[in-house]
């Protein structure tokens, strides 16, 4: 089962970035690695199944509402989906909420690479955070836009990293 592909499609729906843009960051595999280390396999599987079934559903409701109904307001899947969004935007894994951990969390076996505590996923992940292009700039400390660019009108193309999809 190719979870990476499912992960990109779900992430695309949650972030409104195209799959090709998400793949372009080069950190999707790392995020999935974090996710599948910390979140129990059956829950992840349920999340991906759920999104797959939404895609084929023939509903008159907008897709956004279907995602809210089936995933975001679900006690088990919602917090996982929100963590996926935060990871893409901010490159940080946030500890799962207390009540979720009590109800659904399982202690990691052995000594895995990632623990369910707050951490920056990696140096490269910080640089690839979606928030920077969403706000019309570049990650602070990386992808330097060049001398004097801060003087340009913010909508000038070329002075900022384009968000055009």
């Amino acid at each position: 089962m190719d979870w990476l592909d499912e992960f990109y499609h779900l992430s695309s729906a949650l972030t409104d970035y195209k799959v090709v843009q998400l793949k372009g960051t080069g950190v999707g595999e790392e995020y999935l690695d974090v996710l599948s280390t910390i979140i129990p396999q059956d829950i992840l599987s349920e999340l991906f199944d759920c999104y797959r079934s939404l895609k084929v559903q023939n509903s008159s409701k907008p897709k956004e509402q279907l995602i809210r109904d089936a995933i975001l307001c679900d006690a088990k899947l919602g917090p996982v989906a929100r963590n996926i969004i935060k990871m893409w935007y901010l490159s940080i894994w946030y500890q799962m909420p207390d009540d979720w951990r009590q109800q659904f969390g399982k202690p990691n076996q052995g000594s895995p690479k990632y623990q369910d505590v707050q951490f920056v996923v990696s140096r490269n992940a910080y640089i690839q955070g979606l928030v920077w292009e969403a706000l019309g700039s570049h990650p602070m400390g990386a992808k330097q836009p060049g001398y004097g660019t801060w003087s340009d009108k913010p909508t000038d193309k070329g002075s900022v990293i384009s968000t055009a999809s």
Binding site: A13, L14, T15, D16, Y17, E64, I67, L72, A81, R82, I85, Y89, V131, A134, L135, G136, S137, P154, T163
Partner: peptide, 15 residues
């Protein structure tokens, strides 16, 4: 917020 709403909010407020 998620998806387009989240992206649009950040794009309209943060700059």
């Amino acid at each position: 917020l998620f998806g387009k709403q989240l992206k649009d909010t950040i794009a309209s407020v943060y700059p």
